[in-house]
Amino acid sequence: MTIRFSIYRYNPENDRRPYMQSYELQNDCGAVMLLDALLLIKQQDDSLSFRRSCREGVCGSDAVNINGRNGLACITPLKDLKQPVEVRPLPGRPVIRDLVVDLSQFYAQYRAVKPWLINNDPVPEIERLQSPAERDSLDGLYECILCACCSTSCPSFWWNPDRFLGPAALLQAWRFLADSRDQATGERLDDLEDPYRLFRCHTIMNCVEVCPKELNPTRAISQIKEMLVRRSL
């Protein structure tokens, strides 16, 4: 018995257009997660390119589209997947090669929300105090691994990648708005109050469904919207 795969291939140096290539592994090859399988396939065919690093779901390198759904190869169990397992690059981004996509715009959107703590008070000699409850409000936000599963499954992001910030960046915008230590709320909200940057989200929830860390960008987006409404009252 074998496990069958169909993998997206494209190397702009040699290929005029992308194509799907079939591979097989033996059932007893030892692969548990999809990443194990991709690594074994690469031993058969060293020309297959993909990103990977931690192999335990914490670095966000190996986001790909698996049987039509975005996910991390390293934490996707093979046994749950319909065969042939179709593996494609994340949708909607330019493909550099095979499963490797160009994420520069995704990163630019992240940078655009000023994802760093802003606090202009004089620096105390101890930590800035934060109650456990205040700290709890960062749970579900700071854990984002920037894998891009969410943004590349968001229809609004596909149509307006240059103007809509996308779920990952907006989740980080909220992470700093929600931090009791941050003092740039006004400035951050000004930057977000725009028909596209924030308001292109139509609550389609694709992002929530695919996030491998079970984070909820949609909720973060509606919390930002609420904050904007409250401010205008």
């Binding site: 760093w116 703590l117 606090n119 620096v123 000699e125 101890i126 930590e127 800035r128 105090l129 934060q130 109650s131 456990p132 205040e134 700290r135 960062l138 700071y142 931090d179 230590r181």
Partner: peptide
């Protein structure tokens, strides 16, 4: 470590608000 906290690291907290 205090410096890291000032940079924004979300350390786990005690009731006193300290790390």
């Amino acid at each position: 470590i205090i410096e890291l906290e000032h940079y924004g690291v979300p350390f786990t907290r005690l009731d006193s608000g300290r790390i």
